[in-house]
């Protein structure tokens, strides 16, 4: 078991009062699983992923990553946890002042990887997501699909055990959507645990993988070969 939620509740304090984004949620994810997280906008998908990454702390309940309690993790330990997780963010979080290649290189440099290794890994991952011809373009010069692939490349370049993908097909046409999904399946096949948050019906119904359905912060369905039912 790589990820485990036990009675997790997350409440945001907003100006108009507290918002219960995650409400008493429990589930386990095994190593190597491909799990889709579905639900309407505002159901709590992003919040759930943020809790896994230690970006948000739950108010109640426990979250375990490989048996380690993420909630009480020491701040000096959090980076080590995050290095084992790759994340594709809903808003990409690409650096606008850096080219596609530099966006990847920057992360590897900050992680203390040697220059030779960086050159090799960056070229390889950009090749995998088929962006090599865009190496020297800035994010503003990339299409939506290319930005998504760049974000995916950055998440994958440090060879994470778990890949979190938050609406990675958010505003893509069906053709590019299939592209991304194929990449996620490829990553899954080499043994990576994939957690995909989406509200795209087609994707889910064709995947034939586990689906966890969220509604107002609660799990209303958790099925082995689930379909998209909201």
């Amino acid at each position: 078991m790589i990820i485990s939620f036990k009675g997790v509740t997350k409440i945001y304090n907003s100006l108009s009062g507290p918002i219960k984004a995650i409400d008493n949620v429990s589930f386990d994810i095994e190593r190597g699983e491909f799990v889709s997280l579905v639900g309407r906008s505002g159901a709590g998908k992003t919040t759930l992923l943020k809790i896994i990454l230690g970006q948000e702390k739950p108010n109640l309940g426990d979250v375990f990553f490989n048996g380690e309690d993420v909630r009480t993790i020491k701040s000096s330990h959090l980076p080590l946890l995050r290095r084992r997780i790759g994340a594709v963010f809903q808003d990409y979080k690409l650096l606008q002042t850096k080219t596609a290649l530099e966006n990847i290189v920057f992360v590897l440099q900050a992680l203390g990887i040697g220059d030779d290794q960086i050159e090799k890994d960056a070229a390889e991952v950009l090749n995998i997501v088929e962006l090599s011809h865009r190496n020297n373009n800035f994010p503003a010069e990339l299409s939506g699909g290319e930005k998504q692939r760049l974000a995916l490349a950055r998440a994958l370049v440090s060879r994470p055990e778990v890949l979190l993908a938050d609406e990675p097909t958010g505003n893509l046409d069906p053709y590019h959507t299939q592209d991304i999904i194929r990449l996620l399946q490829k990553v899954h096949q080499i043994g990576t645990t994939v957690i995909l948050a989406t509200h795209n019906r087609e994707i889910i119904n064709n995947l034939n993988q586990r689906v966890i359905t969220l509604e107002e912060g609660r799990i209303i369905r958790d099925e082995k070969e689930g379909k998209f039912i909201i």
Partner: peptide
């Protein structure tokens, strides 16, 4: 700010940031 946020999210250690 953005660089720092991204470094944090990909697990760059505090002292390196």
């Amino acid at each position: 700010k953005e660089e720092i946020e991204i470094m944090r999210l990909v697990g760059v250690s505090n002292w390196f940031i």
